[in-house]
Design a protein around this nucleic acid. Structure first.
Lengths: 176, 176
DNA sequence: TCTTTATTTCTGTATTTACTGAAATTTCAG
DNA sequence: CTGAAATTTCAGTAAATACAGAAATAAAGA
């Protein structure tokens, strides 16, 4: 697949940012490429376009599939796997948020719960410090609780919510 | 400073997670330690407690200060710098979100704007692809716009908002 | 000013992570 | 069942990042 200058810029940038988003460059580049592509691409298409090793493409596609961002499709009369990306940017965003929550928040929740349990019968730890750990846990539980609810709202509601912006403050003031 | 088992667990875990949050282990450990500490600590206290090189502590403290998470304080009759962390978990959260936005979103916004401008007079790029890039930009602008508004709300409002959860859907339905 | 203490900068090393290319495995047509 | 095509696994290498320790700089009392 031939990349125009703009497409190339998009793909390269997505790759750069990937590392800051916790995925490696190749994975992010492949995702960007498939996101732009009009038709599903084969692993070899991707190899040629991005100039990375075939094996690297294979592993990266696996990762993207495990995230649910990319899926395999088949083209009639072609034996090879073709890959296509989710196209709706909202859907993609929600998947990414979910994955990051799993990797960046859930383990911490687990550990903090353990800490709170263990601190209960640990005389050596100062009460103020125990309290600080407990407050941290409480905050994160509140945050993820909110997220769990948000993620079940449909797109329309979410978009309205975002559009509402600061008006929400008045809305709450009147009621809460 | 002597760490109790629970404190140690907290600090070590925070360090582990640090890498997933885009900061290195030492920076995250120091942040955790200062967050728990009842009193401001000196760089040497930190060195001793965590068992990392003094120079490493110095650089890490610099980073934490540049983020605004840690500040220097002075103790009467002591020449050395003492460091203390922001203690309110909400404040810390907002700082981290702001920093991550700057590193993970703002550069992408810039690049996407350039892409959209450049794609305008690039005949080679398919209209559908141009459209996809434009839609991505639009989404991210909406998202950051929403965030910019949220971050100016006071804590109380934010907490109420989170507590509201899915009830928001009904609220919007009636009005929007 | 000189000397001691505190802090930072910098260079080389260690650790971690990403990637390639070869080998092994799977898949499928004939 | 056989051979070719497609894909995956894996071991070694390369690149990026974090870190320690030494050297340099800065700050403050004498």
């Amino acid at each position: 697949m031939k990349l125009t200058p703009v497409m190339q810029k998009f793909v390269l940038h997505w790759g750069e940012m990937g590392s800051r988003w916790g995925v490696n460059r190749t994975v992010a580049q492949i995702h960007a490429l498939l996101y732009l592509a009009k038709e599903p691409l084969t692993a070899e298409d991707i190899t040629d376009t991005l100039g990375v090793a075939r094996s690297n493409v294979s592993t990266s596609l696996r990762e993207l599939q495990s995230w649910g961002l990319v899926k395999v499709v088949h083209v009639l009369g072609d034996r090879r796997d073709h890959f296509e990306s989710m196209k709706d940017v909202w859907d993609i965003f929600l998947v990414i948020v979910e994955q990051r929550k799993r990797r960046e928040l859930d383990p911490t929740l687990t550990t903090l719960r353990e800490c709170v349990l263990e601190s209960a019968d640990e005389r050596a730890t100062d009460p103020e410090i125990k309290q600080r750990i407990a407050a941290t846990l409480e905050f994160l539980e509140q945050l993820t609780g909110w997220y769990e609810q948000m993620k079940h709202l449909d797109h329309g509601t979410l978009i309205k919510l975002m559009a509402l912006g600061t008006k929400i403050q008045g809305l709450l003031g009147k009621r809460g």
